[in-house]
Design a protein around this nucleic acid. Structure first.
Length: 424
RNA sequence: GGAGAGAUGGCAGAGUGGUCGAAUGCGGCGGUCUUGAAAACCGUUGAUCUUCACGGGUCCGGGGGUUCGAAUCCCUCUCUCUCCGCCA
């Protein structure tokens, strides 16, 4: 969330900037500013009362020590009114703080100045494209038909075991998954990301820290018995490594990578987009997560984008990079680049990665700070993350774009990992 | 699942009703000494809210209570550890 201080100092800019996200912020910002003023006044009064109380208490202590019992009793009587005041102010302050916090969590992150206006994904800004256009002869098959033809992904079996959106990968299909995961992790390591293997379930505090809770609660699987949530992305457990931390400035940039399965309820999804691997409830992803100095987070974002691009290039896929418009930008993000690969058989672009700078929005929720050298006060760090990469649509594109009459070719970079060069 | 113990500053670890935000040690930072380093010695070293500042408030796992006053007493929740049981 945005800090109250920032909102106070940049009221107008915040309101204007949030218009790009199609969020009308004027009234909530006004409310926050006035409630915060009230909060500070209350705090001041409370502090003054407590200060008085502390003084009297010390006096009483001294009087008792000196044996002046009667004087002490007199002083005691004076405190009862103060006590009531303190109680009243305390409960008021708490109430105000809860309210203020709730309002703060309802304000989205401010978009970066370069974010184009727009309502939906149709308004995303084209950045660049790469990779060779795919030329397929005859009538190319979509991946769900290829999957069945070569018996590498069994959607029906997943249906039986669990339900829709939980495919079973078989034989060379399973092997492909493992190859992609290892390939992505090895590449990340080479690029300086430290590998971690985090828990797949997180508690409420973690869900709140990265912004999934409270507003996106319905998108996560909730284990109610223990009040834990299945992670929708490794971003959640990995970023929360740094919750309530004051990190070392010298450690910047902090770069992590993690492979995890991801679980998403995808409530409200339906129709053509959910066919095959296009939208799943459980899928595998390698994520990169970074913590960086606020002055340098955008340089790092560029590097992360370059890194993701290099992965797609190595896999030989045709892709394009988009700068998300305000309407498509997530609640917590300041700037996001999406990567899409072209599926020749489906004749459409598939989103395979999303790389974002959250600036201090998550870090402020998580109390992730650092102490600038030579300064006394801590400062909120910046967090970033990106998919590098999500497997299902990459696999879909690989299957479709590399199909030949003899079978599906395996990209060269993966052959060491798969142990075969053809799915047939 | 059963029984017990515990939760204090970056770490270790004192502190059981009043000058305790907290002894001491380690670590960190600065300095003296040294050609340099080590050792030794001296100093310094938590977070957070509020205030232009001085200052004031809060924080000893979380929440509540007793008291003029709580790290210290009471209640409650959570977590950790040990033993037993079960088990990958």
């Amino acid at each position: 969330m945005l800090s109250v201080q920032y909102i106070n100092e940049n009221k107008e800019q915040v309101v204007q900037a949030l218009k790009v996200k199609n969020f009308e912020a004027q009234s909530i910002i006004n409310e926050i500013v006035s409630i915060d003023q009230y909060r500070r006044d209350t705090q001041k009064n409370l502090d003054a009362s407590k200060s008085q109380m502390n003084t009297i208490s010390k006096e009483i202590g001294n009087l008792f020590k000196e044996g002046k019992k009667e004087d002490a009793e007199v002083a005691k009587r004076k405190t009862s009114e103060l006590k009531d005041d303190i109680k009243a102010l305390e409960s008021k302050l708490r109430e105000v703080e809860v309210h203020l916090n709730k309002l703060l969590t309802e304000v989205p992150n401010v978009p970066h100045p370069s974010v184009p206006p727009g309502k939906s994904e149709a308004d995303n800004q084209f950045e660049r494209e790469g990779g060779e256009p795919v030329k397929l002869n005859g009538k190319p098959l979509p991946h769900w038909e290829l999957a069945e033809k070569y018996d590498i992904i069994d959607f029906k079996l997943g249906n039986k075991i669990t339900g829709a959106g939980f495919p079973v990968y078989k034989g060379k299909g399973a092997r492909m998954q493992r190859a992609l995961i290892n390939f992505f992790l090895d590449e990340a390591q080479k690029a300086g990301f430290n590998e971690v293997l985090p828990p797949l379930m997180v508690n409420e505090d973690s869900g709140f820290g990265t912004g999934q809770l409270p507003d996106k609660e319905g998108q996560m699987y909730h284990v109610t018995e223990d009040n834990l949530y299945l992670i929708p992305t490794a971003e959640v457990p990995v970023t929360n490594i740094f919750r309530d931390c004051i990190v070392n400035e010298a450690d910047f940039p902090i770069k992590y990578t993690a492979y995890t399965p991801c679980f998403r309820r995808e409530a409200g999804s339906y129709g053509k987009d959910v066919r095959g691997l296009n939208r799943l409830h459980q899928f595998d992803k390698v994520e990169i997560v970074c913590v960086e100095h606020p002055d340098r987070s955008y340089q790092l974002l560029d590097k992360m984008v370059e890194y993701v691009e290099s992965l797609i290039q190595k896999l030989g896929l045709q892709y394009r990079v988009l700068r998300l418009c305000g309407g498509d930008l997530s609640f917590t993000s300041a700037l996001t680049f999406d990567f899409e690969v072209y599926s020749a058989a489906q004749e459409k672009w598939l989103e395979v990665s999303s790389v974002s700078n959250f600036e201090s929005y998550q870090a402020n929720r998580m109390k992730l700070r650092f102490k600038p050298t030579g300064e006394k006060k801590t400062q909120i760090a910046h967090t970033l993350n990106g998919s590098a990469l999500a497997l299902p649509r990459i696999l879909a594109a690989l299957l479709e774009n590399y199909q030949t009459p003899e079978g599906i070719k395996v990209p060269e970079v993966l052959q060491n990992y798969t142990g075969f060069d053809m799915i047939n």
